[in-house]
Design a protein around this nucleic acid. Structure first.
Lengths: 162, 162
DNA sequence: AATGAAAAACTACACTA
DNA sequence: TAGTGTAGTTTTTCATT
């Protein structure tokens, strides 16, 4: 449940988009500097940011941490195939993946595959253990296919500490 | 080239990890509150955060934006297969994917697949156009397989504005 | 849009493990 | 020596006009 239609009072104008572009790269940028860059007053920038946070356009403000620094060495992309695609099965799977911190990302997809997950773990042992509790232990998972990332070429994601 | 071993002056202690856990969820949390939570002074927290930013443990501080708010409606997970896996081919591919803003994430992987990409575009038309310039136009791409996300179940990623 | 008050971030310095 | 806490300074945020 709970998608995010949200009041969405006003559509974003080009000022909003410019502000977003900046805070997406560095949300510690002083509003004073943002103001200068987009040619608005600092107060206006502040109100727009507050409004966008309120409206859910800005979801969260976070520090992006290097996984290596946390000794998280395994990045796996996993395709998961469910035995059936009834709503109940899908919802159950979504709930499980959402509740599992090692599952950093989860997409429900077309194309035969049911889900694609991005999983981070400390090492291969814990990855193997995780796959057991996530997949092998459930009869409603038909199969899964793991791709281990040798290089995180581009991956600015908000990781969750293990 | 250019991995990120980095001076890595000191290994993270449990204070650092606690601080990270907090700023990963909300990097606007006042240092005063963080200090209270981890039982340190605000100044100590400030110094530790600065040190971790310096050391690259904290990569960036960003606002996470809802893709829907930016009318980015297509999320695709793409497996890319290269014709050959020589270093030069791989590096060329990495460079291309890194330089393409719509490619939000890129992993180089084991398991037959060469790369897994997460791509965001406005709509299907622009996705189709993008695949042409990314894949079809290059003879060194053997093939690719697209999985379109019907639901971004879990995806707290720092997206790039189109 | 500009001013001013409140709060947060940062700095200097003395102290302690 | 490396790191902390206190206290004082600067900068940013936020509310009011």
């Amino acid at each position: 449940m709970a998608k995010r239609p949200l009041p969405s009072a006003r559509p974003l104008d080009s000022f909003d988009r410019e502000i977003l572009r900046i805070v997406q790269q560095d949300n510690k940028t002083p509003q004073r500097m943002i103001a200068e860059a987009v040619h608005l007053s600092a107060a206006a920038v502040q109100r727009r940011i507050a409004a966008m946070e309120q409206a859910g356009v800005i979801r969260r403000n976070v520090a992006l941490v290097d996984p290596d620094a946390l000794a998280v060495s395994v990045t796996a992309i996993v395709e998961v195939f469910l035995r059936d695609e009834r709503t109940a099965s899908i919802d159950r799977a979504k709930a499980l993946f959402r509740a599992t911190p090692e599952v950093q990302q989860c997409y429900y997809t077309t194309g035969g595959t049911s889900f694609v997950l991005v999983i981070l773990t400390q090492d291969m042992r814990s990855y193997e253990a995780l796959t057991r509790s996530l997949f092998s232990d459930h009869e409603w998972v038909a199969s899964f296919r793991t791709l281990v990332a040798l290089d995180r070429v581009k991956a600015d994601t908000s990781i969750v500490i293990p």
